[in-house]
Design a protein around this nucleic acid. Structure first.
Length: 478
RNA sequence: GCCCCCUUCGUCUAAUGGUUAGGACGUCAGGUUUUCAACCUGAAAACAGGAGUUCAAUUCUCCUAGGGGGUACCA
């Protein structure tokens, strides 16, 4: 085995890349990068009935979006089925495995009986020592691993510590299905060995599997990798993650307008910490990450904190990058296609110019886009409830009075506009807010927006004046 | 049922055999302000319960409770 650290992320392609999987991938990636090693990607598709092409694509896509590039080509475990079968045959030949002719019905009955009698529902070992000549005809057997019945199996885990399983509690598991395909526990052992995996970092739902795999490693005379079983992520209510709260594919987070950097930063702090560090760059994560600082208790998923982090990353991301991300995001949104058509080249330019004021205020890209909608709105604007309130008689009167002042502003720059409006407010004995709020309503249709002078400037002279006239005049005719 | 794991503010977590148990998010109250955010200041907020070890336990041990995972010809 090489000295170099080799980790692997090994998702099964039976669904999207969920948030727990994403964190596992991140931990594997970080550890490999921290130690100057490699992360391999292995698609565990030995269950052909449940694996789908779409899931594989979603997983690869999710990892790329999170910017967790793996080393080398992804390995599809099924392509190694022949090798797995060889190892199973070897075990069989060495008397460390045996053929089992029990039918699914018999197994179900066996479990039923065990439950009724209050025993562990595992396989009872019927065919372990039974003569093969008693095998029922026409039945393709499974191959079962002959697990040790006495003693204990100990796993030394970098997160969980020393965990001891009594061998009597671990039954003889199927390593080769009756159709000759390998099952998970065999494939994992063979591939982890053949791929020189040094560290297995995965969810602690695999803790029992670690014991079974250790037994197989031993039977094969191979050295086990170093294990690190990370606690799972729960939903906000402490229960298992469900679709309603967080057990979404990473693409769902992308569609909700989260930034990969924010999601990574959020996930790395779920179960791992480095003193009081909260916001950290990827380089810092790599520098600081280690297995020993991973906690042993499950964490709950908290959208509020993710949002806070996302807001932070939005504020520090360059404007042009945000525009690019929005361009990529828009088609994924509900009504996104229509929205995309409404935003022309000029619209995207306006968006970029308005970005400093917009990104300051948004928690997600979706929210940002929504607050930018005034940029693309067609006159006459529809007013939301708050905006309508601001445009009462006094508000409209103010606009009518302010209008000629603005018409005289030249050049149409933020500084000149601010000077003009401020002097207007001064001279007419108004607080700035009394002028700014109706103006904001007229220009954006809302009561909250980026700074009003930025809005005027980005909208441009003609559009701004037209929007103000719409409201000033509407007041007269009403 | 059986096996395994876990338990510090609402949430993520830090630290320690002797501390005012720290930080962050969220909440609340102020400040700033053209709105909303952001930002600044402050506040409330935790060692699951019970035994034991010890001069001393949040920290070590055990038990209980609660939560989670596993118990497939799934991974």
């Amino acid at each position: 085995m090489s000295e170099k650290v080799i980790t692997r992320f090994a998702p099964s392609p039976t669904g999207y890349l969920h948030i727990g999987g994403a964190r596992t991938a991140l931990f594997n990636w970080l550890y490999a990068r921290a130690k100057g090693g490699k992360v391999l990607l292995r698609i565990e598709d030995t269950d052909q009935a449940r694996s789908t092409k779409g899931a594989i694509l979603a997983i690869l896509d999710g990892l790329r979006w999170l910017d967790l590039e793996w080393d080398g080509e992804p390995l599809y475990q099924m392509t190694r089925a022949e090798r797995h079968r060889e190892v199973a045959e070897q075990l069989l030949a060495e008397g460390k495995a045996y053929s089992c002719y029990a039918s699914p019905e018999e197994l179900a009955a066996m479990r039923e009986r065990a439950r009724a009698e209050g025993r562990a529902p595992g396989y009872d070992g019927t065919w372990r020592d039974r003569d093969h000549r008693e095998a029922p005809p026409g039945i393709a057997p499974t191959i079962r691993f002959k697990a040790p019945r006495e003693g204990e199996t100990v796993i030394k885990d970098r997160v969980q510590g020393r965990v001891v399983f009594a061998n009597k509690d671990l039954d003889d598991l199927v390593i080769l299905r009756s159709d000759g395909t390998p099952t998970y526990n065999l494939s994992v052992v063979v591939d982890d060995h053949d791929m020189d995996i040094t560290h297995v970092i995965r969810g602690d739902d695999h803790l029992t599997n670690a014991a079974r795999q250790t037994q197989i490693f031993k039977a094969l005379g191979w050295q086990t990798p170093i294990y690190a079983h990370v606690p799972l992520i729960h939903g906000p209510d402490g229960a298992k993650l469900s679709k309603r709260h967080g057990a979404l594919g990473v693409e769902a987070y992308r569609a909700m307008g989260y930034l990969p950097a924010a999601l990574r930063n959020y996930l790395v702090r779920l179960g791992w910490s480095h003193g009081d560090a909260e916001i950290m760059s990827t380089d810092e994560m790599i520098q600081w990450f280690d297995l020993d600082a991973i906690g042993r208790s499950a964490a709950r998923f908290d959208f509020a904190k993710l949002e806070n982090l996302n807001g932070h990353y939005l504020r520090v991301t360059p404007d042009i990058e945000i525009v690019q991300r929005l361009k990529a995001l828009v088609p994924e949104l509900p009504d996104g296609v229509a929205l995309g058509e409404r935003i022309d080249a000029d619209g995207w330019q306006k968006l970029e110019r308005a970005m400093p004021g917009l990104k300051e205020r948004a928690k997600t890209l979706v929210e940002l886009l929504d607050s930018a909608s005034f940029l693309f709105a067609k006159r006459p604007l529809t007013m939301d409830e708050q905006a309508a309130k601001l445009l009462d008689a006094a508000g409209r009167e103010m606009l009518a009075a302010l209008l000629p002042r603005l018409e005289d502003v030249s050049p149409w720059t933020l500084e000149a506009l601010e000077a003009s409006v401020r002097s207007f407010a001064d001279e007419t004995g108004r607080k700035l807010g009394k002028a700014a709020q109706p103006l904001r309503a007229a220009l954006t249709g809302r009561s909250a927006s980026p700074g009003i002078f930025e809005v005027l400037e980005v909208l441009g002279r003609d559009e701004s004046l037209a929007r103000i006239r719409d409201q000033a005049h509407a007041g007269n005719s009403a």
